[in-house]
Design a protein around this nucleic acid. Sequence first.
DNA 1: TAGCATTTAAAACGCTTGTTTCAATCGAGC
DNA 2: GCTCGATTGAAACAAGCGTTTTAAATGCTA
Lengths: 212, 212
Amino acid sequence: MPVNTRDKILNAAESLFAQQGFHPTTLRQITRSAGVNLAAVNYHFGAKQALIHAVFRRRLDALNAARLEQLSSIEREHDNPSLEAVLNAFVEPALAFSQGGDAEAQRFMQLLLRAFADRDVVLHQALSHDYAHIMQRFARAIASALPAADPKRLRHQIDFIVGALTLTMAESALNETRVIAAELVQFAAAGLRGCGINQSSTRTHSTKEATA
Amino acid sequence: MPVNTRDKILNAAESLFAQQGFHPTTLRQITRSAGVNLAAVNYHFGAKQALIHAVFRRRLDALNAARLEQLSSIEREHDNPSLEAVLNAFVEPALAFSQGGDAEAQRFMQLLLRAFADRDVVLHQALSHDYAHIMQRFARAIASALPAADPKRLRHQIDFIVGALTLTMAESALNETRVIAAELVQFAAAGLRGCGINQSSTRTHSTKEATA
DNA sequence: TAGCATTTAAAACGCTTGTTTCAATCGAGC
DNA sequence: GCTCGATTGAAACAAGCGTTTTAAATGCTA
C-alpha cells in the first residue's frame, strides 16, 4: 500500500504496462487506476517516456541486486559452486525478487519481455547498461564452473538462457513457474555442458546432419 | 517488388510493425511507406487489427510449411533422424524461410517476439492454433529421437527452445544469426539430452545445490 | 464504346492522446 | 497565523489517431 502519489503511479503503471504494453496504456488509465490526478504524472515524472523508464529501473535494480546477492552468497559457501547453483542464482530471483508471489513475478517477466520486444533505443541502452554489469559477473561465475567453455560461445548461450527464462516465465501458467524454473536450470546446465563437448571443436556428425 | 496494392501494404506494414510495434505504427505511416492511399488499408483489410492478423498469417504459414517440409524431408532420408537434425528443421527455416536473407529473417523474428509480448487475445489464439499443429509434430519427432524423455517436461523444454530462438534471433547482429542458430541447435540438443539423465529421476546432487 | 465493378484519391469526422495551464489546497517553518 | 514552496485538481489545448464518406479514376467484359 503506497502512501505517496509517486509510488501509486508507479505501481499502477507497472501493472497496466505489463498487461497492455507501453504505448496502448494511456495516462488516463494509469491515473484512474492509481486514484490520482492526471497531471500528477507529468508533475512527478515529466513525461510518459520518463515514467516508463522509472518503472523499469525500480524493478530491474531490485532484481539484479537480488541476483548478485544470491551469487555472492553461494560463492561464500563454496569455493567452486556448481553450475546449477550459479544458474539458479540467476533464475530464482526473477521469481521471488519482490516476495510478491508468482503473480507479481510473472507480471514483471511480461514487462521484461516487452522491453525486449519494444526496441526503444533509450530503454534498451539503459537496460543493457544495467545488464552489462550483472552479465559479466555471471559469465565469470559460469566460466569458472565450466573451465573449458569458449568465452564467445558462452555469451551466446547466456542469451539463450535469458530468452528461455523471459519468454517462458511470461507465458507459463502461474502455478507452474517454479517447476519450470527448476527445469530450466537443469536444461541450461546440460546445454552449457554440451555433454562434455562445449569447446570449439564441434561434433562432425551432428553438424553434418544438421546442415544437410 | 509487389505490383498490387494489397502486397505493398502488407510489406510496408510488416516492416514498420517489426521496427516500431503494432500500436505505435500508424496507418498513415504504412500507406506513405507503401506509396498508396490511406483509405486503401480500410478498403483491403477493413481495419488495422485485421491488417495485423493478415501480416502475421502470411509469414507464419510460410514458416511452418517450411519447417514441416524440412522435417518430412529428413524423416524420408533417415529412419531415425538425429536430435540435431530435428532441431535444425525447426530452427533453420526461421532464418531462411523466405529466401530474403538474414535481414528479412531477423525482421520477422522481431515480429514474432512482439506477438509473444503483446498479449492480444485474438492474435494469440490464432498463433497458438497455428503452432499447436507444428509443435505436436516436432514434439513427436523429438520424442522419437529421445525415447526416454518425459512428455510433459519435453513440452516445457520446447518452450525454452522457442524462447531462446525468438529472443536471440530478434536481438542478435545480422551477420551472426547463422552461427548463433547452429549454436542454439547444439545447446538445445544437449539440454534435451540432459547429459543422459532427462528422465523423471532428477540428480539429487544438483537439485540440492540449486535450491540451497 | 458502354457499362459496371474495382480501386484510388482527398477531405473530413469524431475521438483520444500526451501535455499544459492555472487556480486551489496542503504542510512545515518562522 | 501567515507565508511560501510543494503538490493536487479540473479544464482546456493542439495534434494525431482510425475510420468514413464522397468522388474520381481505372480496368474489365460485352
